[in-house]
Nucleic acid binder design. Structure first.
Lengths: 225, 225
DNA sequence: CGCCGACTTGACATTAATCAAATGTAGTGG
DNA sequence: CCACTACATTTGATTAATGTCAAGTCGGCG
């Protein structure tokens, strides 16, 4: 099976909705956004895949890509031809089994996203979003407390179903509550527990000024690459 | 491969979250709801599977069920042992291919749901929900315009992230706009086009009283089985 | 007949969107 | 290197949408 690497520059499109499906992509490094365009012409961001995530799975059913993918920064992917893969997996039970698992995870992940979008209010959604990012960085061996947002406020809002203004105000509120520090796109979570409490809705009447202990602010230029 | 049938009575649980995954289920007839319980103990309904939908796919990744499934009415499913299936699919490329498609569809479906939940407002969400139901009934050979809601208002609201009260008021609004008639749980869509326009957000300033032409109200007891 | 749960309706409070404007930041070309 | 433009972000004032609380109605069922 021929697996090739492909560089994708910032703002470059990896694949586009309705394009015939031939290739899956595993992210080697970098960040992406996946989105769809609804009938009204508006974009809806569906997720922010990063290193080790697999792209293009939603095309397996309809044989055409159901979403578009654009790089948020200069990135690199492995291109895996699907037909080759499918043949090979028939001979390699362990590969097939593993692939089923990947697909299964894709489903569970989407369902979790629905949970977030559906019931939660703005503050909760955003907190859940940050906790999710934090967890994913931890899974990948990066700091769960200090990371850089690769997406704009607008993209966050679009993803969460909020306006840019709301996103901005929520960041301010989190800062005031002593949950995080933020400089441009550099995030420093100072109260992970409080953040999770918010995300899970266990927010009981808010003890106003507590847990302030001020770790140093993140340098503006920190990167993960 | 041993495929068995299983009856599931109204309110009976087909499987439960965290249960080890062994079996997939294809719905033969009937309606179900799938849901999760968040950390706060609240239920979030993830979908309303019906005839020919496949249940339990979200367990393939983690090998444990990620959601619970309960029947909304007396129903029947085919139980398909997953390990048997996995072995068999290795020998039958067409089966494997088909299964990939089913999984792919599950992913796209979930993403569509996210689109609905994320950006839309209450009216739009609910319209999209009804249009979706309508389409699914059409796909299955039933009337897309007259059908019975198997779920309570509360369950609809839970699924869409709205309160029961909002659901109730929205139904009233739809009635007043001449989009549908409703008697208890019997729905009669009288303006499918208008409904779709609402769902897709192409609602331009609402011409107030038009398209009223009053088709006969649905009998209260219509069923699809 | 009367209870109970599902649903509707109304008044009010709260949330988040909208509109509008100011401020900051990153590039770009001189 | 700096001025300048375009864009991203913040902030403020206001409005519309939706949740919350509280009755009340409807229908099914024992």
């Amino acid at each position: 099976m021929i697996i090739t690497r492909r560089r994708v520059l910032r703002d470059e499109q990896l694949f586009c909705v309705d394009e015939p499906f031939q290739t899956m992509y595993a992210v080697r490094f970098g960040h992406f956004k996946t989105f769809r365009v609804n009938l009204n012409g508006e974009r809806q961001i569906l997720g922010f895949p990063m290193t080790s995530d697999v792209l293009g799975l939603d095309a397996i059913g309809p044989a055409r890509h159901a979403s578009s993918v654009v790089a948020l920064e200069n990135s690199e992917v492995c291109a895996i031809p699907f037909t080759h893969f499918e043949q090979l997996s028939a001979d390699l039970p362990s590969l097939q089994h593993h692939f089923y698992r990947v697909l299964g995870h894709a489903i569970t992940r989407d369902q979790s996203a629905m949970l977030v979008m559906g019931k939660m209010r703005a503050e909760q959604k955003f907190a859940a979003f940050l906790v999710n990012l934090s967890t994913r960085y931890a899974d990948r061996g990066y700091s769960p407390l200090r990371f850089r947002l690769r997406m704009s406020r607008e993209e966050i809002g679009n993803y969460l179903g909020l306006t840019v203004e709301s996103v901005s105000r929520l960041l301010l509120r989190f800062k005031q509550k002593g949950l995080l520090r933020i400089d441009h796109r550099g995030v420093n979570i100072t109260d992970r527990a409080g953040m999770e409490a918010l995300a899970t809705g266990q927010t009981t009447a808010e003890p106003i000024a507590s847990r302030v202990h001020k770790p140093p602010l993140v340098a503006a230029d920190h990167q993960f690459k």
